[in-house]
Design a protein around this nucleic acid. Structure first.
Lengths: 233, 233
DNA sequence: CGTTGTGTTGACTGCACTCAACAATTGTGG
DNA sequence: CCACAATTGTTGAGTGCAGTCAACACAACG
C-alpha cells in the first residue's frame, strides 16, 4: 500500500471514453485548461484528503475513483463514484469537502485550478457552464438524499444499478461492470457490506439480476428493477 | 385548505431579516432582479410542485418553506427548510427537482426567472455569484448525505439543531424556534415522527436541551450537543 | 501452499419502525 | 362560552429490517 504517485507527461492512449457520461463532462472547458500532467494511481490510493485546498482540477481518463466524507470513528459516506470522462476539483470553492481515492488502476489529467479561476473571470461562458455543472451535481445529490433517507435496501440497490446502467448506457440483459467493492457500495447507499451482499443474492434468486462475477451484473429484468428502484409497491 | 394565493404589490414591512443567513443570500443579484410581486401564502400551501418549469425565482421575506421530493406511495424527503433571506428558483436549470410548501404564514417576493437568465448572459459577475451559491448548496447537500447515510437518530437531531442554531446565529442557552412540524423534521432527517419525538424527550432528560414548547428549544449544553452531532463517541 | 483480501451466508441483536392509546392544543359550530 | 372535532405531539408495547458478530468460500498473490 501507499505506493507513490507515478507522474508522467505522456498522454494515456486508452481513454476508454464511455458512451453516456454527460454529467461531469467539460467540453466547453477543454480548451481553457490546455495540456495537463497525466497521473497514474494504484487501487486504494488517496488522491485528495477532505479539507485539502483545491489546487488542481482533475479529469479521469481510465479507471475510477470514489469521493467520500468520513467521521472520527471511521464511518464513511461515499458521495459519488467517478468514471472516465468525469472530473473533480472543478466545482467547489476553497477546499475539497470530501476525500478522493482510486478504486482501480486509474489515470487522470491534472490542470492547475488557477487556470479555471482565471477563465471564470475572463470568459463568461466558463462561469455559465460551471454553474450548469454545479446545478446538475446538486440535483444528483438531492436525488441521493431521497434514496438515503427514504428507500429500503432493495430499492437502494435497484436504484444504484439503474443509475449506473443509465450512466454507462447499458440496456436490458447487458452486463454492467461494478468496479467498486461491496464496502464502497455499502458506504454509498448507507448500508453494510452484509446487507449489500444479501440484497444482491436476493435479487439474483428473484431473477431480477444475474451475477457473472461479484462485479459483473446482468440486468435481467430492467423494468421490474426500475419499478423497485422508483419505490412503486 | 387550498386557500388561493394572496397577491399584493405592496412590500411587506416586517422583513424580520435574521442574522446569520448567508447560504442562500443574493446580495449581488438584488439589483439585477428589480422590483417584484409580493406573495403571501398560508401554512401548508403548495407554492411549487416537483417538475414545474422554473418561471420565477423567489425570496422569502417572512415565514418559512420546505423543499421536498416525494415517491408514489407518499414517502417524502425534505431537501431543505428555507428561512427569511433565503430563496429558491435561482439555482437550477429547466425544472424544479422538488416541491415547495409554506410551513407557516409566509410572504415572498417573486421575480421572473427570465431576468436571471438574461443577467447570466450579460453580466459575468452574476454567473460567478450563482456558481458560488450552487457550490455552497452542493456542499450542504453532501453534508446531509453523510447525516442521512451514516448517523444515528441522536446524532441526526443534534446535527439538525446545531445547523439551525448556527444558521440563525443562536448561542448556548438561547431559545431556538423550530417553525416546522415533527413530521417535517422526520422527513428531513430520514426518521419517523415517533423517533423524532422520543429523541427530543431523551435529549431533554439528559439535560442537553430544554423544551419550552415543542417548537422552542433551549440549547442547554451546546458543546455536548456538538460532539454528539459530530459523531464523536 | 499458506496468507491476505473480498464476498457470502448464518445466527442473533438492536435501533428505529409500526401500531395504538392518550395528551395537549386549536378551531368550529351550536 | 362550551362541547366537539381535528390536528399535532408524546409515550408505550411489540415487531422487523438492517446491523453485528462469526464462520466459511474463494481468488489473488507472494
Amino acid at each position: 500500500m501507499a505506493a507513490p504517485f507515478l507522474v508522467s507527461t505522456t498522454t494515456q492512449p486508452s481513454l476508454s471514453s464511455v458512451a453516456g457520461v454527460e454529467s461531469h463532462e467539460v467540453p466547453a472547458l477543454e480548451s481553457v485548461l490546455g495540456p495537463g500532467a497525466t497521473i497514474v494511481t494504484m487501487p486504494g490510493q488517496t488522491i485528495i484528503v477532505e479539507g485539502d485546498p483545491i489546487r488542481h482540477c482533475y479529469r479521469i481518463l481510465a479507471g475510477g475513483v470514489r469521493l467520500y466524507k468520513a467521521i472520527a470513528d471511521g464511518r464513511r459516506q461515499v458521495i459519488d463514484f467517478l468514471v472516465p470522462g468525469d472530473g473533480f476539483g472543478l466545482i467547489g470553492r476553497r477546499r475539497y469537502p470530501y476525500s478522493v481515492e482510486a478504486i482501480s488502476l486509474t489515470s487522470l489529467v491534472r490542470h492547475p485550478r488557477a487556470r479555471v479561476d482565471e477563465a471564470i473571470e475572463s470568459d463568461p461562458v466558463v462561469a455559465q457552464r460551471l454553474f450548469e455543472l454545479a446545478c446538475i451535481e446538486l440535483e444528483r445529490a438531492q436525488r441521493q438524499m431521497l434514496l438515503l433517507g427514504r428507500k429500503s435496501a432493495d430499492e437502494k440497490i435497484a436504484s444504484f444499478l439503474l443509475a449506473l446502467a443509465e450512466r454507462l448506457g447499458k440496456h436490458e440483459n447487458e452486463t454492467l461492470h461494478l468496479p467498486m467493492s461491496r464496502q464502497d457500495m455499502a458506504d454509498y447507499l448507507g448500508l453494510t457490506i452484509e446487507t449489500v451482499s444479501r440484497t444482491f443474492s436476493r435479487l439474483r434468486k428473484e431473477g431480477l439480476i444475474e451475477l457473472a462475477t461479484p462485479h459483473d451484473v446482468v440486468l435481467a429484468k430492467l423494468e421490474t428493477l426500475r419499478s423497485l428502484g422508483e419505490g412503486v409497491e
